[in-house]
Write a protein that binds this DNA or RNA. Structure first.
Length: 637
RNA sequence: GCUGACGUAGCUCAGUCGGUAGAGCACCUGCAUGGUAAGCAGGAGGUCUCGGGUUCAAAUCCCGACGUCAGCUCCA
């Protein structure tokens, strides 16, 4: 038979397997093969003639296959150590794997080395992996004999016509769809990472299983590199940097709410004013609305029915009132205050006020998941014929704002769900307009079929940070329902009442959350426009304090955030401190500088300094800050 | 909320078999007046998260609450 790899043709005997092909093609490091979208083990006979892709560890699908077998090896190891264990599911992805299991003994970090040792033993034994297709009856009998009740349940849930396969390696057998490696010996560097609770099939009403997490690599070096990356992420953790850089803190008495220290407040305000500045350019008007409302409002908006469990509800003077979790109902009231003309639209109302959402205690996570926060929120009221242009404008704001941080982003369009409100034709048109707006903005996007909100389709944006991690931030939602619930109208050319469409949108999403992401993205080393202190002046000895303070005063007068390190320490100490505090620039001033009226400028991360006239440096830095440049450019001309 | 782990000085952490607590950094004081990543010496700082219990004696063992962390679930 004839098959090709990378377009190169190979002639193989009938019944040859993918492993034979890998050999013929010189792909010694192939782990599996992909043909017509399906992934096959190397021991499987070639399914058809045509092009075959060899999957290596570097390919995400190849890594997934590798981890899939690794999770079986981990399960095998656990079974050897604890024969009574029962297994549920054990999936894998390109990063690693886990296996859910029921086991009396509570696994902990102390158990991991023994499990890893056993995994290495299984790898060294280099068991061949084999696949077997069983009839439903035989499969049930096999797992009944083994006492694997979860496996029986999984089989029972499989559709009538499903192919039921089991995989064996050594004494271990598992119900599994595959695909797998052809032998266990490839998994040279396994690592058990952590254990956590998880419910079978995500069902909270059922007893909790232990979920054992792991990862694995073909080589020890690969594993070590991975662990280094994990360390780097830990080093950048915004909760850690937030404390080290004095940006924000948390306190037991207010879980889920941040205390913003002066430095953090500065960064926060920079983000807010950046947003204000950009949005004002696009015709947004900023408003402030109440943050406590009577339930009537939440009944009108529908929150009382759908969102009550996420709201803080307060008793006050024999009355129940609620803190707002969102601004939209308030903005709708504002819209309805006066008669609106078609000429008034689009009306763009922005608000940065406080929002409170009750989040379950176990879900809180630094600034990334809080109970009290602020959004760069806005609601745009527009006519149906303005949807396309309105969305395009929001996408432009998105481009400007994310571009300033050097953040890449990925876009998803979520369409009409099964249960929706409003006319189908309007949905179709709105979805088409969103897609066209995305196209015109030159954005590639993925469609999440049926994932829209019940009141309208939406665009979700994930930013990608310096470590390649993705975070959901911006959201743009079309809403046909609120205007109806709040009886919003405008007068058209003929003076007739029409219903506007509403767009909910936030670019940062939550400012708290976005700031947390930025801390991790920049590893705490903010560009100068965001840095809490932009420049620190370091006198060489106490003789130079006067000059240093004069320089600082001058920089402050120029609108820069400057401070003097007046501590009675040697220069080296202050330089070290300035670097540790990630201050973008520090200026060394001693006899030479005082005499010549200059400063010795050193940018964060640089090793040498440049002597520059005071006013020249002030001008350069002011330019850099005003342009919100990402790079530090004020050391050299 | 659920499962598990953890909670000791401002921070990072040590504290053995139950016998009333320690380091480094930071902070303060003194000496040193210093030129591009840590000068030397001294000092102060703790209701060991909180509340119960066991014990002659609890940071340590037990129970509960709160918080944090890793997940799960949730995030119309």
């Amino acid at each position: 038979m004839q098959v090709s790899v990378n377009g190169k043709l190979y002639e193989l005997a009938a019944g040859a397997c993918y492993g034979d092909l890998a050999q013929a093609a010189g792909a010694q490091d192939a782990l599996a093969a992909r043909q017509e979208g399906r992934i096959y083990e190397l021991f499987r006979p070639i399914a058809a003639e045509g092009e075959v892709e060899m999957l290596r560890f570097s390919d995400p699908d190849g890594a997934m296959v590798f981890h899939h077998t690794s999770t079986h090896i981990m399960a095998q190891a656990v079974r050897r150590l604890y024969p009574e264990v029962q297994f549920a599911i054990g999936p894998a992805d390109a990063e690693g794997f886990f296996y859910d299991m029921q086991l009396e003994h509570q696994l902990g970090p102390d158990d991991f080395p023994a499990i890893e040792d056993e995994m290495r033993r299984i790898a060294e034994a280099d068991y061949p992996v084999s696949r077997e297709v069983l009839g439903r009856r035989d499969a049930e009998e096999l797992f009944r004999e083994m006492g694997e009740t979860f496996k029986l349940e999984i089989i029972a849930r499989l559709p009538e016509d499903a192919e039921i396969s089991v995989y064996r390696q050594g004494e271990f057998v598992d119900l599994c769809r595959g695909p797998h490696l052809s032998r266990t010996g490839l998994v040279r560097a396994p690592k058990v990472l952590s254990v956590a609770g998880a419910y079978f099939a995500g069902d909270e009403s059922r007893p909790m299983l232990q979920r054992l997490y792991g990862t694995s690599f073909p080589t020890q070096e690969g594993l070590e590199e991975h662990l280094r990356l994990v360390e780097e992420a830990k080093r950048r953790d915004h909760r850690r940097l937030g404390r080290e850089l004095d940006l924000f803190t948390f306190h037991d008495v207010a879980p889920g709410f941040a205390f913003w220290q002066p430095a953090g407040t500065t960064v926060y305000h920079e983000l807010e004013s950046f947003s204000r500045e950009v949005q004002a350019r696009f015709g947004y008007r900023e408003v402030m609305t109440p943050w406590i409302f009577r339930p009537d409002l939440w009944q009108t908006s529908g929150h009382w029915g759908h969102y009550k469990q996420n709201m803080f509800i307060v008793e006050s003077e024999d009355e129940t009132v609620a803190l707002k979790p969102m601004n939209c109902p308030g903005h709708c009231l504002m819209y309805a205050e006066t008669v609106r003309s078609y000429r008034d639209l689009p009306l763009r109302l922005a608000e940065y006020g406080p929002l409170s959402r009750f989040e379950r205690s176990g879900t809180l996570h630094g600034l990334l998941r809080v109970r009290g926060f602020h959004q760069d929120d806005a609601h745009i009221f527009l006519r149906e014929d303005q949807i396309g242009a309105g969305i395009e404008e929001v996408l432009e704001i998105l481009r400007v704002i994310y571009g300033t941080f050097g953040l890449q982003y990925r876009v998803e369009l979520s369409t009409r769900p099964e249960e929706y409100l409003g006319e189908r034709a309007l949905w179709d048109r709105a979805e088409a307009e969103l897609a066209q707006a995305l196209d015109r903005a030159g954005l590639e996007f993925r469609i999440n079929e049926g994932d829209g909100a019940f009141y309208g389709p939406k665009i979700d944006v994930h930013v990608i940070d310096a470590l390649g991690r993705q975070w959901q931030c911006a959201t743009v939602q079309l809403d046909f329902q609120f205007p109806l619930r709040f009886h919003l109208e405008y007068r058209d050319q003929e003076g007739k009442a029409q219903t506007p469409v509403m767009v909910h949108r936030a670019i940062f999403g939550s400012i708290e959350r976005f700031l947390g992401i930025l801390v991790e993205h920049f590893a705490g080393a903010f560009p100068s426009w965001l840095a809490p202190v932009q420049v620190r002046v370091l006198p060489v000895s106490d003789r130079h304090r006067g000059y240093a303070e004069a320089v600082t005063a001058e920089l402050r007068a120029a609108g820069l955030r400057a401070e003097t390190d007046l501590r009675d320490e040697k220069l080296g100490y202050k330089i070290r401190a300035a670097q540790a505090d990630k201050v973008p620039y520090f200026l060394v001033v001693g006899d030479r500088e005082a005499e010549e009226g200059t400063v010795s400028v050193r940018a964060r991360g640089e090793s040498g300094s440049e002597a520059v006239a005071r006013e020249v440096f002030a001008r350069r830095l002011t330019d850099e800050v005003r342009a919100r440049r990402l790079e530090l450019t004020a050391q050299k001309a």
